[in-house]
Computed example of a mutant assay.
Amino acid sequence: MHVQEWLDTVPPAAVYAVVSLVIGLESLGIPLPGEIVLVSAALLSSQHSDINPLILGACASLGAVIGDSIGYAIGRKGGRPLLAWLGKKFPRHFGEGHVATAERSFQKWGMWAVFFGRFIALLRIFAGPLAGVLRMPYWKFLIANFLGGVIWAGGTTAGVYYVGLVAESYLKKFSFVGLGAAVLIGIASMLIVKRKAKRATEEKEAAEQESVPAAD
């Protein structure tokens, strides 16, 4: 079962909670498909009036900001031994190469790494913990974290929601066009068949008339 299909089976309040929780857990350093869940929920909100895109965006933003802040606190307390432990548990996400790439980004860009890290899958799970490990001042982290989380979550929700509305409207129009085309094709086919049948009847009658004198 796909994420969107599963979300469609739960109440709207649960959708908000699931989106906020998954994004929050991903933000604090657990490799989960937060973006996939958010996109699926936003697309679902464009198809169901029960799911409010504003509430969905707010819940996603809240999960992103709180999750990153918790990840920052964990990274600040655990330090590099935490990254080493995560590398053993999740080598595909916290391997030495990934950590080194993320660390270079943080050292080069600072607050901007936290901000833009929200839009990059690899850095999204690193932003909070790594900022804590590198002892970035919390006020700097909080500003970048808040702006990045709100713009990413709100922008993704709004973009997917409106794309879903446009797509649904297009498909409806397409269905009417298809129906009209089907009717026209049906009428044309009927006229063609009728014309061929009339021609075949006329040819048969002409053949019969020609055969009568020959018999006489």
Rank of each mutant, 00 (worst) to 15 (best):
H2R: 08
Q4W: 01
Q4E: 08
W6E: 13
T9A: 15
A14C: 09
V15N: 09
V18N: 11
V19I: 08
S20A: 14
L21E: 06
I23H: 02
E26M: 12
E26K: 05
G29A: 03
P33M: 11
E35A: 06
V37R: 01
V37K: 00
L38Y: 10
L44F: 12
S45E: 07
S46T: 00
H48L: 07
H48V: 01
H48S: 09
D50C: 07
D50V: 00
D50W: 00
I51H: 03
N52P: 07
P53D: 13
P53I: 05
I55D: 03
L56N: 05
A60D: 01
L62Q: 01
A64H: 09
V65K: 00
I66F: 02
G67P: 03
S69A: 07
S69N: 13
S69D: 08
Y72R: 03
I74F: 11
K77S: 13
G78W: 03
G78S: 05
G79M: 01
P81D: 12
G87A: 08
K88V: 09
K89R: 15
H93S: 15
F94G: 12
G97C: 07
H98C: 12
V99A: 02
A100Q: 14
E103D: 06
R104Q: 13
S105P: 07
Q107K: 14
Q107P: 05
Q107V: 13
K108W: 13
W109A: 10
G110P: 00
W112H: 05
F115A: 12
F115I: 07
F115Y: 15
I120F: 08
L123T: 10
P129N: 03
A131K: 00
V133Q: 13
V133T: 02
V133H: 03
L134R: 10
L134D: 09
R135W: 02
M136A: 00
F141S: 06
I143M: 11
A144T: 10
A153W: 06
T157N: 10
L165G: 04
V166F: 12
Y170V: 14
K172S: 08
K172G: 02
K173A: 15
F176M: 11
F176I: 15
V183C: 10
G186P: 06
S189L: 14
V193H: 06
A197P: 09
A200H: 09
E202G: 04
E202R: 15
E203M: 09
E203D: 07
K204P: 06
E205Q: 01
E205M: 04
A206S: 09
S211H: 08
S211T: 13
V212R: 11
V212A: 10
A214I: 12
A214L: 11
A215N: 00
